[in-house]
Design a protein around this nucleic acid. Structure first.
Lengths: 210, 210
DNA sequence: TATTAATTGAAACTTTTTTATCGATAATTT
DNA sequence: AAATTATCGATAAAAAAGTTTCAATTAATA
């Protein structure tokens, strides 16, 4: 239960979690790996294997207790241990992320956003303060921010990233469609629309051929 | 060059493409797999293998001609063959996608958006018409829309999806944090923030431990 | 109480993906 | 002109991920 977890498995855990939460709301008290697998179109052994990383609450003939499994997953994913983040770029995408309530339950606390547009600096958007991008370094240091979320246009992404790194963030979540250069100890996760679109298009083309 | 391509490889191709386009703008005429690999933190053999699916323009000692490789990738990814799409849900995320100019160069043409808010129906946002969600089915049929992009709140996603399917879309790109049930022939690609956040958080935790 | 059925979890096996090795090629240097 | 070097592309090896099989467990049923 405590070895290095594979990235693939890790990616599936939040999917299980969200399904389980849905099921719990519907009043489902116990659920089996087979049921989960069917709902998500996965192999049932894979589901069991994945879940075993985070929980050992399964009982033969019964399955997993929904409530316990949810809590085990939340624990494993460290959703209780909140991390502070800021968003750089209060355009539509930045706003969408600012306004997305769900992050709190994923252990992500978005503290503020930054932008270069003087008209919005100093205002509140979605109840979060917008600061001048000049202050990134200062505020990131001061408020102990772990994660910087980049939603600027591509051409400003690297400069933004450099400021965040100077401020001391440990990880960057990059929504700008460009790749970033960072010191080795900084974690970067790229969110690449083009990538998923490519996968989608390709499946679509394959299916049109048939 | 024409076998079934792996999803992993396919996901990396757009990343290569965007790097190459950047390099081309900087005036780089030739680039080697090793250089690409270093820039993207990948293995050089993997890069060469990936690229070989889409192109065979590599020359020993020289590398790939940037221009040719770009065009081969665009061809392979079918970016020249435009597909029509609509967005359902003109909230911040919907607007962000409406306004993202980049999609055109990925072969995706966003025709319109739909929403339930009567105040914005009939208006233009980012120069695209917003229609009443009642009309999804009708317009999707009429305009020959291939792809439906769902950016509604989670609780409306399934109903939205059903309408799109009735209208005849072939693929769904789902940004709502819920899993959808669709007929077998419909392609669904889920864009799951929680998933990438989980990967990021986990890396962050690992790095904090050390 | 014995039998059956559903389920877990571990182990063995298969497939896919990634990485390493190597010969061939072409530009550059000696 | 020969030697050297950077690179590609193919093949082989290794690692990772996914699937199948099976024994053990426990609730339900006969």
């Amino acid at each position: 239960m405590n070895k290095q977890i594979s990235k693939r498995t890790l990616s599936r855990l939040p999917v299980y979690l969200s399904l389980l939460q849905e099921k719990e709301r519907e009043g489902v008290e116990y659920i089996s790996a087979t049921t989960i697998a069917n709902l998500l179109d996965l192999n049932h052994v894979q589901v069991r294997k994945d879940l075993s990383c985070a929980s050992s609450a399964g009982r033969p003939k019964v399955g997993y207790e929904t409530k316990v499994l949810i809590s085990d997953l939340q624990n494993f994913l460290d959703y209780n241990n909140t991390k502070n983040a800021v968003i750089i770029g209060a355009g539509d995408l930045g706003k969408a992320l600012l306004g997305y309530g769900g992050f709190t339950s994923y252990g992500l606390n978005i503290v503020a956003a930054f932008d270069t547009n003087p008209e919005i600096c100093g205002t509140l958007i979605k109840n979060k303060p917008i600061y001048n991008a000049e202050k990134i370094e200062e505020l990131v240091k001061e408020q102990n921010i772990d994660i910087g979320i980049i939603t600027t246009p591509a051409q400003f992404a690297q400069a933004t990233c450099d400021r965040l790194v100077k401020g001391g963030v440990k990880a960057i979540w990059n929504f700008a469609p460009t790749s970033l250069t960072v010191p080795k100890h900084i974690i970067v996760q790229n969110e690449n629309m083009a990538t998923s679109l490519a996968v989608l298009s390709n499946k679509l083309n394959e299916s049109l051929k048939e």
